[in-house]
Every structure is written in structure tokens, then in C-alpha cells.
């Protein structure tokens, strides 16, 4: 449920009513997140100007699987390079170069290595931007311009929430040390 980032994008076409609190310090924010989890409040997302250590555990986010994807991409690169060179030099058009056998494995090592790194890197970066819903020119709605500066933001989605629930969230934000509480539809 709290794969919030994904919700954020899959529901991008429908507007969201958001109630959010801005914090000045990442430690206060972290405690607020812990508290919200303890109170069983449904956090929409947390935004920060830099990665806050321990936040992903606090929010209960699953570990990123990007590195696993990286391994797969790298393995594809290794195989592509080595098999392609082997095919070219033993099947497609064997050519004698400087008294080497057609299948001169030591000479294939550098390119195999480079393509492993290249495939893994490009694959991971493309995967990263794809799952984050980011691309050149994409505009994802932001709650506050200061989030990329010095504010830490804890946001709740309030679509269809009663006034009582909203008040409860507001008092939670105030109690947890939010400096500012705003509502915005994005």
C-alpha cells in the first residue's frame, strides 16, 4: 500500500488533495514518520532535499531492487560481447590476425568487461528513471518549492477524507513538530 511513489504516478491523471507538514530538521521528520506509522496513519509520501538515513526503514519501504536489475543487465552485456566476438571470429568471417588463433580469448577480455559495465550502467539508469517516472521535460507536481532547499515534508492524501480525519492529521502534524501545515491539490 505504501509504495507511495508508484501511487503517485499511477494516479497522476487524477488530482490529489494533499495535506502536508513542513519540518526544519530531518531528525524531527524521522520521529514524525515513526509516530505516524505507530498511529497507523497512511502516509502519502515524504519529501526531502537530501536522502535521510533511516527514512526508508521508518516508512517501511521495501529495499530497492535496482542492483539486481544491474546484475542482469551486466550479465547480458558480458554474454553479448563475448558471444558476438566469438561468432564473428569463428563463424561469420574468421580472419588471421598476427598469428593468433581465430578464437583468441585473452584479446576479448577488455571489450567483454567494458560492455558488461556499459550495459549494467545504462540499464540501471534507464530502469531508475523509468520506475521513478522521470524523464527530460517531465513535470511531476511538487508540494512546495522549499522541499529542494531546506524543508522536509510529510504528506497525507485527503481525497474523500472527512473534516474530522483532516483535523486529526493536522493535530498530528502540529504535535510532531511541523513548522508549517498546508493543504494543496496536485
Amino acid at each position: 500500500m505504501f509504495e507511495s511513489a508508484n501511487i503517485h504516478h499511477t494516479m497522476a491523471n487524477q488530482s490529489k488533495e494533499v495535506l502536508y507538514g513542513l519540518y526544519n530538521d530531518e531528525q524531527v521528520l524521522l520521529q514524525a514518520v515513526h509516530k505516524a506509522k505507530a498511529d497507523h496513519l497512511e502516509i502519502m509520501d515524504v519529501y526531502s532535499p537530501f536522502p535521510v538515513h533511516g527514512l526508508d526503514e521508518a516508512m517501511g519501504l521495501s529495499e530497492s531492487r535496482l542492483h539486481q536489475a544491474g546484475f542482469v543487465f551486466g550479465a547480458i552485456g558480458t554474454l553479448t560481447a563475448f558471444l558476438f566476438m566469438t561468432w564473428v571470429f569463428t563463424r561469420d568471417w574468421p580472419i588471421i590476425f598476427g598469428g593468433k588463433p581465430y578464437w583468441s580469448i585473452p584479446a576479448f577480455i577488455p571489450i567483454t568487461f567494458e560492455l558488461t559495465v556499459l550495459f549494467a550502467s545504462i540499464g540501471m539508469v534507464v530502469a531508475y528513471y523509468t520506475v521513478c517516472g522521470m524523464a527530460p521535460g517531465v513535470t511531476n507536481p511538487t508540494l512546495d518549492d522549499r522541499i529542494t532547499d531546506d524543508k522536509f515534508c510529510l504528506a497525507f492524501q485527503t481525497n474523500g477524507a472527512s473534516q474530522q480525519e483532516i483535523d486529526k492529521l493536522k493535530s498530528f502534524l502540529t504535535a510532531s513538530g511541523a513548522e508549517e501545515i498546508n493543504a494543496k491539490t496536485i
Binding site: I95, I96, F97, G98, G99, K100, A107
Partner: peptide
Amino acid sequence: HCDNAPCENVCPVAATNHSS
């Protein structure tokens, strides 16, 4: 016309190689 021609190994585009 070296059979182990050093020039052949280094050409990146296979412009020089050995005949049978």
C-alpha cells in the same frame, strides 16, 4: 610479411590481415 605480424593485431578495422 611476418606470420606473427604485429601490424595486423593492432589495426582496429581489420584493414590489414594475413592471407592463408
